[in-house]
Amino acid sequence: MHLIEVNNISKIYNGKRTKVTAIKHMDFHIDDGEFVGIMGQSGSGKSTLLSIIGGLNKPSDGEVLIDTLDVYGLSSEQRTDLRSEYIGIIFQSFQLIPYLTVDENVKLPMAVAGIKEKKQKEMADSVIEKVGLSDKKTMLPDQLSGGEQERVAIARAIVNNPPILLADEPTGNLDSQTSSEIMDLLHDLNKKGQTVIMVTHNENMLKNATRIIRVQDGLCVN
């Protein structure tokens, strides 16, 4: 039994006059504890694939199973609950809430997970320490560097301890030194048991990945 099964999915965007096929008949699986890289050029369909795996973007065809659960057989609200429980997402360009502090941004997923405030504080403090931002808890995102914002985004994605971590170009906006630190952090998380699926166009970032899925023109090419 695989943690994630992607069965023959396709995604077609219907424009007013044109149809764009972003994903064509993709078929693969990911096992528990893997660090999988999804590589491809800009516009190849890798981000679309990640959003489909994350339950955010319904495929035009095919199915995605997480822990044998048909993700798109669920209602929209059930998928929201699935994301809350199973999936942590690290977005491209950090995507922090600008009017919330580091601490508040990290606690966000717990605000709707029914976790008591004392427990929330313990969990948030623990992940903020893990990403090395304990001294910046009360700062707003725009008071942080790019690398620090990325760390907050990672802390937010892992605070609920989800088994799956999806990362969309997490190093895309960072210098090489910071990128390397972020990759070390993701590998640490992977070693501690989290399955990481990371989208990037930079192969150097995937040196330690257990597997790489190459995407080109909406197709898996290996």
């Binding site: 994350g54 609200e77 929201t80 609950d81 809350s84 977005f91 605000a111 997970a113």
Partner: peptide
């Protein structure tokens, strides 16, 4: 819109 998208993506229900 972007912010609401993030909320929904990280597990906020419509009612939230």
């Amino acid at each position: 819109t972007r912010e609401i998208g993030i909320f929904r993506a990280i597990g906020f229900r419509k009612a939230h």
